[in-house]
């Protein structure tokens, strides 16, 4: 009897904790938006964060994009040539990259490369009481630390996803046209005939924008909310990567079901 009560109490505590954190995260997000204008007035702060989360992620994004495109080229050719339609390789590579793989894989890489770094940085600032010190000096830590990192991520993410897709299409072209020998003209013209700018390219950009906002918010919040100990920081970083990945994949399903439901 008491064991059952213990289990129920644990479930209750977890629910209350989860709700409390969710509410805190929402309030944190609203405060962040409110102080965004204040942080934009000092633009170099945001530019510095674009450098750290965007420019430094460039290498991993470009190399991964290239390899994803190479694999898509090989697999796509293998399947399409069974139906005698290897000319459609361009369509397959472009659509799968623009609609799904580009935004999602770029966001997953971004979460593990830049999101974790942001959480670690803010978490360590909290552990060493730098955030409290800022508060003492009447410098708002949300405007000075959190908002620039959030907006740096939001701005970087769509650009990184676009580069990922472009690099992937280049990789697919390398395998399909240069290595295997699919007709160059057919590759590009079929791709252009069935990829629509608004429907495919722009929806991909919207997706990556949403993912960028989700990942950046999770990263900043986990850092801001972590236990101020070494263990707490490490846990916060793990949580950032795990919940970012889950949020990206769940949001991707929701967005896809709104954007591409086959009409």
């Amino acid at each position: 009897m008491s064991a059952l009560a213990g289990v129920l109490r644990r479930i209750g505590a977890m629910t209350v904790d989860g709700l409390w954190r969710l509410g805190f995260a929402t309030r944190f997000f609203l405060t962040l938006l409110r102080y965004s204008g204040q942080s934009f007035r000092r633009l170099p702060l945001t530019i510095r964060e674009i450098y750290f989360s965007g420019v430094l992620s460039l290498l991993i994004i470009l190399v991964s994009g290239l390899f994803v495109g190479l694999v898509l080229g090989l697999q796509g050719y293998d399947i399409l040539q069974r139906f005698g339609s290897s000319d459609a390789l361009g369509i397959m590579v472009a659509l799968s990259l623009l609609r799904e793989l580009g935004p999602v894989v770029a966001a997953l890489l971004f979460a593990s490369r830049a999101g974790s770094a942001v959480t670690a940085e803010i978490g360590l600032m909290k552990t060493t009481e730098q955030l409290q010190a800022m508060d003492m000096m009447a410098v708002n830590p949300i405007a000075r630390v959190a908002a620039p990192r959030f907006w740096g991520g939001v701005i970087s993410m769509p650009l990184l996803a676009a580069m990922f897709s472009a690099m992937g299409i280049f990789g697919g072209w390398l395998i399909g046209v240069v290595a295997i020998g699919v007709d160059d003209g057919a590759f590009w013209s079929q791709m252009r005939a069935s990829v629509d700018f608004r429907h495919d390219v722009l929806n991909g950009v919207i997706k990556s924008f949403v993912f960028g906002a989700a990942v950046s918010l999770i990263a900043v919040f986990e850092g801001y909310d972590c236990q101020p100990t070494a263990e707490g920081v490490s846990r916060a970083i793990t949580r950032t990567v795990v919940s970012s990945a889950l949020a990206i994949l769940a949001l991707d399903f929701v967005l896809t079901s709104f954007m591409f439901r086959g009409l």
Binding site: A162, A166, D200, V201
Partner: peptide, 26 residues
């Protein structure tokens, strides 16, 4: 950062011009 943003927009323009072609009617 300038190089990064320029590269990003170049990729977007590439996707819009070279990859997405049939948008003339949309």
């Amino acid at each position: 950062v300038g190089v990064f943003v320029a590269l990003g927009f170049a990729a977007l323009v590439f996707l819009a011009m070279k990859v997405g072609g049939s948008s003339e009617l949309s």
